[in-house]
Write a protein that binds this DNA or RNA. Structure first.
Lengths: 231, 231
DNA sequence: ATATGACCAAATTTGTAATTCTGGTCAATA
DNA sequence: TATTGACCAGAATTACAAATTTGGTCATAT
């Protein structure tokens, strides 16, 4: 990795930590520079503005999330089933506080950035016709990895609900004896496995093939966004 | 119903509507009096303070919710299974905007009431050792209406997650083509039925018996709270 | 060529005095 | 006796100037 690239990574890492802890509003460019051990000017050699830095971080976190997801699936013996794939997406989501904040649109972290008229999230929502989750579930169903008698749109939405509440429920419903997150995710996986796997078991290999396909498309889309952002 | 009692109901109904629409902070006692068609003084003949009115409403909504739940179960042919019971709790929750706001601790509705040091919700949380949902799930498991190989605490928590996200996900994740709520609830019910019902089917009658038991306990607890509130 | 941090205009926050609003009371009324 | 609404003290909001902070720049240093 070039020295320049390495410094950019350091800046982004510092920014991620500060944004998660203090939020977009309370984190200043000076803070980021100090935390990353560079001068403020250096930040502006990498990013045109605070917002561009922030948006680069958003994209970067999404990429990291996608890669982590793929890794987990690859390492999972049952990785090709719909339930296992979904489960691993939850682990991936849960592994990054910043990504979790993005997913639940945490206003404490995203702050006034959310109010900007054409922020990253709005643009993304307007751009996509169908939710990524739905596309994924639909493909899995067509490939025989999800029972035909389930409505893919409904399943996709329930999956979003569970992901959302996995990272968001603590904010509003403090539960004294909440089970460990891992137990929750495994519980969800078991439920999904029983409820969604077609009779006779789904085709695990077909599932993995689909994932590669989606991953590739996703990488392309993120690449495009990264370019769009440079302008 | 006594004339006095009827007026109290009218006040509470008016308050519920205003609180849901404008929130606790922006709803004044004058507003409530006007909406209910009574004088402000009359409000204070029924309630010692705005907060007492509010808390009476909280308890009243919980009672209505519990009754609605029982009704739905009674009317449901499969009402005794765990999945059907849970499903009906979601319908009951979804049928009252105020109850939904309570469940998700919606700060737009509950406003500064939530900041009060010993508000209803804090008192309730401190009072109860185990979550109601867990008690319910555990009893159902002991009665043979939930597979033994599932952890009741985990299942209870996942049920809370789904309930929370059912009423809360719209606030942060606007989904252009979200399925109708009824389809979502039925989808959840189907998933739960497949995943939680023991081999050979659960004992539906035992389930209903348990519910009556819990309903009775719940009625008692709410009665106690109502008294505690009078002070 | 690269990197820095002093510097600045604009935005945000703070302090605070004036104003409005609101929960609660109670003398007057029906 | 039961009910009302004018009234009031304290709370909340507004207005706005002063002070501070912050995103971004660029002359200077390395």
């Amino acid at each position: 990795m070039s020295e320049n690239r390495e410094r950019q990574e350091r800046i982004l890492a510092a920014a991620a930590e500060l944004f998660v802890h203090y939020g977009y509003d309370k984190t200043t460019v000076d803070d980021i520079a100090r935390e990353a051990g560079v001068s403020k000017g250096a930040i502006y050699l990498h990013f045109k503005s605070k917002d561009e830095l922030f948006e680069t971080l958003l994209v970067s976190e999404m990429q990291t999330y996608a890669e982590k997801w793929l890794e987990l699936i690859d390492a999972d013996p049952k990785g090709g089933t719909l339930a296992a794939m979904y489960k691993n997406s939850l682990y991936a989501l849960n592994s990054s506080a910043f990504m979790a904040a993005m997913f639940k649109q945490d206003s404490r972290v995203l702050g006034n950035y959310l109010r900007k008229p054409d922020n990253f999230f709005r643009v993304m929502r307007d751009a996509q016709q169908e939710s990524e989750r739905y596309v994924f579930v639909k493909m899995m169903q067509d490939a025989g990895a999800l029972r035909k008698d389930m409505d893919a749109k409904v399943i996709a939405h329930i999956m979003d609900m569970l992901a959302y509440s996995l990272v968001g429920i603590d904010d509003v419903l403090p539960n004294q004896d909440k089970p460990p997150t891992e137990d929750i995710i495994e519980g969800i996986a078991e439920i999904m496995d029983r409820a969604l796997t077609p009779e006779g078991g789904g085709d695990s290999e077909a599932g993995k093939a689909i994932l590669q396909q989606i991953a590739e498309a996703s990488r392309q889309q993120l690449g495009i966004m990264k370019e769009a952002e440079q302008e």
